[in-house]
């Protein structure tokens, strides 16, 4: 296993006590695997990514273990983390404009990664940057390397971010909603690009999204997050065909399918992290809730080989009923 997160918890301190945004999160990613974390806003999916990257805000406190190639990232000092970031693990973000430096040419920005990690000379780094821009299919790369981010479209900027992220051939790429700000046609190009790069370099990808359509197209395995917890995790085709957790079912039922058939939305609203129900955190919105759901929080149990569900009714056939 390349990345093994064990019992990760993250909380922020506030005036009214600690606010838990991630609770006892465990998942692993194998080499060359695309693992998708899917969930709605505020479920803790971005915080998971920041925890792995060591980019949590100052006032956040984390516990548990994040084992990367066997060593715990949470115990690393700043210096070792800096050597790791961008080299072994790199990340691309939702908004490519705010993650690029507006006053530096894109070719230099890509090359900078190589200068920092390998001490490559500036000239060589920039020619390497042009190669990388070719890899991410940016036309006339040599000329565009001299452009500034504002001269490029959103899709091209995201390609620059990807070029930067893969410059050192990392073993793990974290992509936090990388296509949310892009149009569908550009989105499909970026997804194809990420999959292609993954295959060529045997890279693992942690892909964060709220869109089940994207999950269906890119993921090998999926973890569904709700209120800071993984509620269900399984291979992609299985979770989409045979969801076991009512929240996953709710997400699938919310998607428009057949015309004229009314959608079945999940009732209520996403709860705030400081105002979660007792017992199962989804109990107040769940259509299959029973008395014992509110008594104690269910654990993540293996219901089928490789298929884990955090629901006391996971053994029943709720999806078809």
């Amino acid at each position: 296993m390349l990345l093994d997160t064990r019992g990760l918890s993250v909380h922020f301190s506030s005036d009214s006590g600690p606010v838990h945004v991630i609770s006892n999160l465990s998942f692993g990613i194998d080499p060359g695997e695309v693992f998708c974390i899917v969930g709605e806003s505020g479920c803790g999916k971005s915080m998971t990514a920041y925890s792995i990257m060591g980019l949590l805000p100052e006032n956040a406190r984390s516990a548990g273990e994040i084992l990367f190639k066997g060593s715990d990232l949470l115990t690393l000092d700043d210096e070792s983390y800096r050597n790791l970031r961008g080299k072994e693990i790199s990340m691309i973000f939702q908004e490519p404009m705010t993650s690029l430096n507006p006053v530096l040419k894109v070719g230099y920005q890509i090359g900078e990664v190589l200068m920092t990690h390998y001490g490559t000379s500036k000239k060589e780094a920039i020619s390497k940057a042009v190669e990388l821009m070719n890899t991410v299919r940016i036309p006339s790369a040599e000329i565009r390397a001299n452009e500034y981010p504002h001269q490029m479209s959103g899709g091209m900027r995201q390609r620059i971010m990807i070029a930067m992220a893969i410059a050192c051939k990392p073993s793990l790429l974290i992509a936090d909603e990388p296509t949310t700000a892009l149009d569908v046609t550009i989105q499909s190009e970026i997804l194809k690009l990420i999959r292609g790069l993954k295959d060529e370099n045997n890279m693992s990808v942690l892909f964060i999204t709220h869109d089940l359509g994207i999950v269906s197209e890119i993921a090998d395995r999926v973890g569904v997050m709700y209120a800071g917890r993984i509620v269900e995790t399984a291979p992609t085709s299985e979770i989409l065909k045979e969801p076991k957790h009512p929240y996953t079912m709710g997400l699938l039922n919310s998607l428009p399918a057949e015309r004229g058939r009314p959608l079945i939305p999940i009732r209520g609203n996403v709860p705030r992290p400081d105002d979660l129900p007792s017992g199962c955190k989804f109990s107040d919105r769940c259509d299959h809730v029973i008395e014992s759901c509110r008594a104690e929080e269910p654990v993540l149990k293996e219901t089928l080989p490789g298929h884990f569900t955090r629901c006391i009714r996971a053994g029943e056939d709720l999806w078809r009923s």
Binding site: M156, T185, L191, R195, G196, K198, D199, E217, K241, L255
Partner: peptide, 28 residues
């Protein structure tokens, strides 16, 4: 046609994932 093909759809049939095929170079 391009728009419809690009729209991500949930497909329960297994393995209809995006091919890592050719990526176009043009933008709007």
């Amino acid at each position: 046609e391009l728009l419809l093909k690009a729209a991500p759809k949930v497909n329960v049939q297994k393995d209809v994932r995006v091919p890592s095929g050719t990526v176009s170079e043009t933008d709007v």
